[in-house]
Design a protein around this nucleic acid. Structure first.
Lengths: 184, 184
DNA sequence: CGGTAAATTGATCTCCATCAAAGATAGTGG
DNA sequence: CCACTATCTTTGATGGAGATCAATTTACCG
């Protein structure tokens, strides 16, 4: 099965045999869940709704039949899958090269853009996930996430009240992601 | 274009506008390069041969035509793409949750398995990439990679001479990846 | 209202990055 | 064949970002 999110908010996570666990992504309206199972039919990760949500479930077999009949759909599916691969590479870069503040800035900017694309305010939104889930996704501990939020607030870049975030200086957030030459 | 590696060894890397750089993977015989460009036709990363190599280039359009005609091929392509997504999630887990020794152990084990699958010795092989490239892939600095190699050697787990690695205790390497309960 | 989960904040420690220098290797040309 | 150079690797010393441990505080919900 593949699931298209109609409304709501999901988290995706991977669990290894040895107990290692990590949030691998968050999905909102219009995004697909379960691409990892195409072809093999076996999913390697779980998805959990973080609020009341609606999805549209599509069986793999049906999807593959449709795509062979409709070339446009096939191309569309390929585009979505390759976009997922590119997105994962972006997360790998984040996890491999960024420091805590850069990671959180990238995270907030990404959420902001996705809310904007859906007609919600890009500067004022409600986080559906906990600090721990954010930390897991960003490769940080929940305490570090909390501290970094506080620090951003001290700097006057954002205003946080628990799960409600208001971005007051998008420029500064963007600037955090533009690494200066010679920076560690 | 998609490239199927016939012989040789490649590294793949992503370069961001701000100069951030990371090796996103290594490919050997039988593996595909360029899956990120399917659908959009635009590649977001580079591939560099680390030794004399041969590839088979397949244009996207031709590939998509063939897959709509041959259902088995379509399913095969989907399987390969989703496997790439799953692989990326594995790297995300590595980058997000593992310490240096675990990362290098996972890296060596992965190489070992891939050499075995191709009929080469899984316990005795030649690294084609530099310490810096390994470090970039694993989210570590080259010095840390070198030190960790040395440490593994002191422990009697492997024997390293520059780019030649001999695994003398696979069990211990596997054990490093089986995180004990309560471990940091 | 209690009771539980989530978040904040502080103090300390650890792993890895950074800085620095020497040693090994392969490739080049005399 | 051997010096010569550029690149890669190893190893040591030091420092810093974030993890860990610990204690409140705040929100959430039956």
């Amino acid at each position: 099965m593949i699931y298209a999110v109609k409304t709501g908010f999901f988290k995706n996570d991977a669990l290894l045999e040895d107990g290692r666990y990590q949030v691998t992504g968050f999905q909102m309206a219009g995004e697909l869940i379960g691409l990892d199972g195409i072809g093999s039919g076996i999913h390697t990760c779980n998805s959990i709704a973080l609020e009341d949500s609606e999805v549209c479930a599509v069986p793999f077999t049906q999807l593959e039949q449709l795509t062979s009949e409709i070339p446009t759909l096939q191309r569309h599916l390929h585009r979505i899958m390759s976009r997922e691969i590119v997105r994962d590479h972006g997360v790998m870069l984040l996890l491999g090269t960024m420091r805590a503040e850069e990671r959180l800035a990238a995270f907030l900017l990404n959420l902001s853009q996705r809310f904007l694309a859906r007609g919600y305010s890009p500067l004022d939104f409600h986080l559906r996930m906990t600090r721990e889930e954010i930390g897991s996704y960003l490769g940080l501990k929940l305490e570090t996430v909390s501290r970094t939020f506080s620090h951003f607030q001290e700097l006057g870049i954002i205003s946080v009240q628990h799960k409600h975030v208001t971005i007051t200086d998008v420029g500064r957030i963007r600037a955090m992601l533009t690494r200066q030459a010679g920076h560690p």
